[in-house]
Amino acid sequence: MAVIDTRGMSCPQPVLMTKKAVAGSGLTSKVEVLVDNAAALGNVTRFLKSAGFKNVDASPNGDDTLIRASK
């Protein structure tokens, strides 16, 4: 499973990092992305859904948000 820490990054980097991780590992069916702002949360969620991840949910993780997605 790919785990991506995008904290501190401004858009579009969180999405680019997610895209790279998802594409790079070929058959990734599970991914976790740590985001620290609402814009990144929206963008990464939208990207994961369009990349074929069916279950995408977000939960608070301290001051940040952890997005868990699986196909």
Binding site: C11, P12, V15, L16, K19, A39, G42, N43, R46, F47, S50
Partner: peptide
């Protein structure tokens, strides 16, 4: 909405995201 004139074109090219 995070509206951005640059972001509109960037996301369309980069991610095929037209939001």
């Amino acid at each position: 909405t995070r509206l951005c004139t640059m972001g509109g074109i960037r996301d369309a090219i980069l991610f095929k995201d037209f939001y």
